[in-house]
Design a protein around this nucleic acid. Sequence first.
DNA 1: GGCACTTCTTGAACGTGTTCAACCCCCGGC
DNA 2: GCCGGGGGTTGAACACGTTCAAGAAGTGCC
Lengths: 278, 278
Amino acid sequence: MPGNDRERPDGGPVGSGDVESASDRNDPGTGVPAAELAGGRAQPKTDKSEATRALILETAMRMFQERGYEKTTMRAIAAEAGVSVGNAYYYFSAKEFLIQGFYDRMTYDHAADARKRMANTRDFATRLEIALNSWLDTAAPYHEFSAQFFRTAADPTSSLSPFSNESHPARATAVELFREVLQGSELAPKLDAELVELLPDVLWLHLMVVVLYWVFDRTEDTERTREFVRRSTPMAARVINLSRYRIFRPIVRDAKGLIQDFILPTIGKTAVKQPPAE
Amino acid sequence: MPGNDRERPDGGPVGSGDVESASDRNDPGTGVPAAELAGGRAQPKTDKSEATRALILETAMRMFQERGYEKTTMRAIAAEAGVSVGNAYYYFSAKEFLIQGFYDRMTYDHAADARKRMANTRDFATRLEIALNSWLDTAAPYHEFSAQFFRTAADPTSSLSPFSNESHPARATAVELFREVLQGSELAPKLDAELVELLPDVLWLHLMVVVLYWVFDRTEDTERTREFVRRSTPMAARVINLSRYRIFRPIVRDAKGLIQDFILPTIGKTAVKQPPAE
DNA sequence: GGCACTTCTTGAACGTGTTCAACCCCCGGC
DNA sequence: GCCGGGGGTTGAACACGTTCAAGAAGTGCC
């Protein structure tokens, strides 16, 4: 979706550029590369304030899981973490920023899990199905409060929106995974380069649709969504496969144009070639 | 999306069945058939309490438009309407229910406007484009605070979700419009009956995508979304048109199945044939 | 008119997210 | 050793959505 400009809810100065020396530094407890942030105040993390920040985030995430998002109050988080309410706000300028932790962590775990699971498969449809199922499994523990998460993410002005700038790193990770889904399959070599370039984003969009379905799914163990995946992946594979044939040229060309002009720009990729037009 | 069971936030008894003699009774000021409700308390509207209810709703909608949703407080609405806060809550068990008015009104206005505009056109793509553009025009005044609206609507547990039971009437109106879009076109007679039955819902889904795009659109006059419509409608028409040819049989069959099994049930249409299963 | 009963109406009170002026603490410079 | 200053920390205070016990205003019945 279009608009990508956003401003933080109100809070302090925007963390200027560099994101806390985002190199390795993955704390073993979580497996997150910890390049997230951008949610709280800015970068000046001198020493143990880092610890305070982590403590608050860990506490919040644990409590969200235990009691749900709405039920967990900022006061309770602060109390449980042994700090003051104001202190929590010093690090996270709004409650919703505490969710970003989930988002990043899940994206990372999902990518890792999916890669492992599909390592020995080359069939595209199967690889895609594995990737999507992997997401469902990774996200399963959080399904209960996914609604509240989703609600926040749906706000276009929120940094949690999957289309926002702040989500860019996580989104890039996810898209990269789908690139691998495709590249590692027997299908990739048969397709033209341009399509291979475009498809990962489309597949990510497929995941977004699945997520949407999942959020609304009230069946036991989200069985309905799982069946949706089971059914929709072979179909997606077939459509992509058929796109190679000459009859479909016109449609494929249209579709490509639509994706390039209206979807990629939305998720932060600058449109490739844009003739001066008019 | 799946789960369709929902309970009102908390409020009073659910209006039992009949919706306040929903026959004619359209107040001239708005053009709404006033079959909405279901948001506030139950049906027992004896006399002038109806007036109080309308007063509160009108006031709220006006203020939402003037200042936005979040900025308009319940206290302010009550004060402006000359009633107490508690009174507002007597009629609308939560602030979000005040939005439903918008939803219903817009759906109604849109349908009326679109019908008028496409009356003299038979080309399917054009009719579809008209219908979608009509929505954009109808919704334009509310774009500014659409984000907050959308945020609420995105909550699966909210009655404002386009997939919820409470939204059923509005949704039915919209789907019906798209049925007319198709039926009034030159394309309809060429398609098999089953597809004609399915397509209106798919077209409504197309609108939902446009809405999604629109909500995130930050360009001047949502120009980007308008271009998206301009580009996507002919393509949709072409896809549908091509579906008639034999080569596409298998895909079309798959697509139909997917729609029938996973989309229709989600928006409140009971799946047609479901073998007793187990 | 008086009584029981339901429907409306009120405003204080509660719990929440968020803000802010003040304070603490530690570290470098003298 | 002390002083200055800035990052870190505090908790009272604010504004908001929502609840609730109490009462007012009808309404039907005798």
